Measured scan of single mutants.
Amino acid sequence: LTDEELVTMSVRELNQHLRGLSKEEIIQLKQRRRTLKNRGY
C-alpha cells in the first residue's frame, strides 16, 4: 500500500487489507496511517 492509499482509504477498506496480516504488521500500518493523517495530507 502507498502512503496515499493508506490515507484516502476508508477504515472498512483498510481492515479488509489487514485481514491475514500479522499483529505486528497491522500495528505498524496503523501507526504509519496515523502519522500521515497528523501531517495533514
Results as ranks from 00 to 15, higher is better:
K23R: 12
L29F: 04
Q28V: 12
L21D: 00
R12V: 10
T2E: 03
R19S: 10
R32W: 02
Y41R: 12
E13Q: 09
T35Y: 15
L18S: 04
R32E: 01
Q16V: 10
E25N: 06
N15H: 09
G20D: 05
N15Y: 12
L14N: 00
G20C: 06
I27A: 11
T8G: 13
Q31L: 10
T35I: 15
R32S: 01
G40D: 13
R34I: 08
Y41D: 12
E4Y: 14
I27R: 12
K30T: 08
N15Q: 10
K30H: 09
S10I: 02
T35K: 14
V7Q: 07
G40H: 13
E25Y: 06
L21N: 02
N38M: 08
Q28D: 09
S22P: 11
L21Y: 06
E25I: 12
I27L: 10
L6D: 01
E24C: 06
V7K: 07
R19E: 08
H17R: 13
L14P: 00
E24A: 11
L18P: 00
I26W: 05
N15D: 08
R34E: 13
L6C: 00
K30C: 15
E4I: 10
M9S: 03
K37G: 03
R12F: 09
Q28E: 12
G40N: 11
L14A: 01
L29N: 01
L21A: 06
N38C: 15
T35V: 13
I27Y: 11
S10A: 04
R12D: 11
H17F: 15
Y41P: 10
H17A: 11
L21C: 04
Q31M: 10
R32I: 03
M9T: 02
Q28N: 11
L29C: 03
E24R: 10
T8H: 15
K23C: 04
R33P: 00
L36G: 03
T2R: 04
I27E: 12
Q28H: 10
E24L: 10
E4V: 07
V11A: 08
R33L: 15
E24I: 11
R32V: 01
T2W: 02
R33E: 05
R39Q: 15
H17I: 13
M9P: 02
K30Y: 13
R39L: 15
L14M: 04
Q31R: 11
E24T: 10
N15W: 12
E25S: 07
V11M: 09
N38E: 15
Q16K: 14
L29T: 07
L21V: 04
Y41M: 14
L36K: 03
I27G: 07
K37I: 14
S22I: 04
D3K: 01
K37P: 03
L36N: 03
E5Y: 05
Y41A: 12
R19C: 08
T35S: 13
R39P: 11
L1F: 08
D3A: 02
L6K: 01
